[in-house]
């Protein structure tokens, strides 16, 4: 979707919530996404981790869907891609486990542990955090899509 179309939707009173909510939501979504990625990537150093960060990512897209409109949210991140990233996250976690199996045992921490308190440390733990974060974020966003709009969108496509 091009920038002019988004501007048009933001200034249209008929779509989504009021202009103030839409403007603030557009500014906040990027910050919320950044905070979610921070919680995921620093999961092995600070409180948080894959699950909490993933839910924050899902909340950012849920805010986009509620405040702006269903059209923009599905244009940015459709239900197909939510399902796709859900599968990718699950698959990558299992693949990490099986690589460990080829070295020692299942989910073996095979990578170099590094120095403690550094960003690149703790072997597979950051990788597993990232895969779980992607999985949980896409999955909860997909649940929100399914609960709020799923039937309606498909019926609409059939009518067209």
């Amino acid at each position: 979707m091009k920038k002019e179309q988004i501007e048009k939707i933001v200034h249209d009173d008929g779509i989504g919530m009021s202009l103030i909510v839409k403007t603030v939501a557009r500014m906040m979504i990027a910050v919320i996404l950044l905070f979610g990625f921070y919680i995921i990537i620093y999961g092995h150093l600070t409180p948080g981790g894959g699950f909490a960060g993933g839910v924050i990512l899902a909340i950012a897209y849920t805010l986009m869907m509620l405040a702006l409109s269903r059209k923009i949210a599905l244009e940015k991140f459709s239900d197909f891609w939510a399902s796709f990233w859900d599968n990718i996250g699950m698959l990558s976690f299992i693949v990490i486990g099986f690589i460990g199996l080829s070295v020692g045992y299942f989910l073996y921490n095979f990578l170099w542990h590094g120095e403690p308190f550094h960003l690149i440390s703790a072997g597979i733990i950051p990788l597993a955090n990232i895969s779980i974060g992607i999985k949980v974020g896409a999955c909860l966003y997909a649940i929100f899509i399914g609960l709020s709009i799923y039937g309606r969108v498909i019926v609409k496509e059939e009518e067209e």
């Binding site: 150093l45 981790g49 590094g114 440390s121 703790a122 597979i124």
Partner: peptide, 14 residues
């Protein structure tokens, strides 16, 4: 053993 500073992450992911 794990190299993770956050002990919760070390337990749940290792």
């Amino acid at each position: 053993e794990t190299g993770a500073a956050n002990m919760v992450a070390a337990v749940i992911l290792d």
